[in-house]
Measured scan of single mutants.
Amino acid sequence: SKGEELFTGVVPILVELDGDVNGHKFSVSGEGEGDATYGKLTLKFICTTGKLPVPWPTLVTTLSYGVQCFSRYPDHMKQHDFFKSAMPEGYVQERTIFFKDDGNYKTRAEVKFEGDTLVNRIELKGIDFKEDGNILGHKLEYNYNSHNVYIMADKQKNGIKVNFKIRHNIEDGSVQLADHYQQNTPIGDGPVLLPDNHYLSTQSALSKDPNEKRDHMVLLEFVTAAGITHGMDELYK
């Protein structure tokens, strides 16, 4: 796709999030870079409003799984890469995230190029959380598991539907599940690639910047598309 050509090198990323969870309002600002050749993201996020009212790991899918245009699609799968094909005009990404036995996040993001920078601007609203639950009670460990993110075409809306389940580790050794339902639709009216069913395999590492006084998260992530085999004719070339 034409959009794919915008991702040949390292691309700067800007992320802006405004959130409200159970009436606790907050903002997060992030910057870093993405390299789609390797499916690599390096980002640093800062809570610009003081202390973040929710655990950082609960925002990873909104912040970095928010820029799935940096996923590495192998050559034989490039015609299934909706995310890059929607660029530079970008796409709207909407999600509902259900935390098992707790509340939910609803998010709406616009992901697009502004100049040479890929920008992810998000509004997040969280409701029905227990004040002493795993999320508002800050009981999650500061780490992140690997996940597969399942993608299918949504021809009606000229976009994709995505769903997956995140496993958050809790300090007591148990797990907090979070079910994600995602819809992506193009902002522009140019042609986009509608994929066959496949998935993104994601690995994320969270860390801290020892010199950063503000509440923050440093993230390194690798994302690769998989799940579609080479056609038989490919094998015999």
Rank of each mutant, 00 (worst) to 15 (best):
L6Q: 08
N22H: 04
N22I: 02
G23D: 03
H24L: 08
H24Q: 15
K25G: 02
S27R: 13
G30V: 00
G32D: 00
T37S: 12
T37A: 12
T37N: 14
T42I: 13
I46L: 09
T49A: 04
T49S: 10
K51T: 11
P57A: 08
S64L: 01
G66D: 00
C69Y: 03
C69R: 00
R72L: 15
H76N: 12
H76L: 08
K78R: 13
K78Q: 11
Q79P: 10
Q79L: 11
H80Q: 10
F82I: 03
F83S: 02
A86S: 13
P88A: 03
E89G: 12
E89D: 09
V92F: 15
E94D: 07
E94Q: 13
F98C: 13
F99I: 02
A109T: 01
E110A: 07
K112E: 03
K112R: 12
F113C: 06
T117S: 06
I122T: 03
I122V: 09
E123V: 13
E123K: 12
L124P: 00
D128Y: 12
F129S: 00
F129L: 06
K130T: 07
G137A: 08
N143A: 11
S146C: 08
N148Y: 07
N148T: 10
N148I: 06
Y150S: 05
Y150D: 07
D154V: 05
K155Q: 09
N158S: 11
K161N: 13
K161M: 12
V162G: 08
N163G: 12
K165Q: 14
N169H: 09
E171V: 09
Q182L: 00
N184T: 06
I187N: 12
P191T: 09
P191L: 12
V192E: 06
V192A: 11
D196Y: 05
N197T: 05
N197K: 09
T202A: 07
A205G: 04
H216N: 04
M217T: 03
L220V: 15
F222L: 09
V223L: 15
A225V: 04
A226T: 13
T229S: 13
M232A: 14
M232L: 11
D233Y: 15
